[in-house]
Amino acid sequence: MYGNYNRRNIGLQFFRDDLIFVAKPILFMSAVKEIHVNGRLQEINAEGERTLLSVLREDLDLTGAKYGCGEGQCSACTVLVDGVPTRSCLTSVSEIEGRKIATIESLEKEGHLHPVQQAFLDHEALQCAYCASGMILSAVGLLQKNPNPSEAQIVRGMNGNICRCGTYQRIIAAIKDAAKTLKTGAA
């Protein structure tokens, strides 16, 4: 469950240039004792080969990141690692030692939704919403890299994320809207 690390390279048809930790060989695995999540150092005791997704969900109760396929194809498991959208189902917990992880649970600040979260609500870019965490974090990463993406750039940047309910047009509209809000906020 939550992805088999050894099968991490199968069939990745939908690479994104911002996808990291894909093919780095792991030489040895020891237990990982702490990870930096959502601004805090968290004590854990996890075998190094376990996926980041399973540790977040099972050991830390951060269930916003979802299991969808375990092979990096749907991106429901997306979290930010040092600000970069990363598929936690293909990432071993040993790989993220010393890096800063942000999950969907950290995006709301003092009761205020992140502009991307708010835009998803405003555009009703949700049906079952199982993909929403991954979509939102992927969009946050996209907008960090490219604050003013064209529609084609949004499609390219988000193409690794699956919404089986098919709300793609709404998500595109939400991302465009969030881009505007972020620019205004920064000005």
């Binding site: 269930t63 998803f120 609500l121 949700l126 929403a132």
Partner: peptide
């Protein structure tokens, strides 16, 4: 009317079966 539990859906707060413990 907007999805009544929409906020829980965009913050990771909603617990699907697979999230329960």
């Amino acid at each position: 009317v907007r999805k009544v539990n929409g906020r829980a859906c965009v913050t990771g707060g909603h617990k699907y079966t697979s999230d329960l413990k």
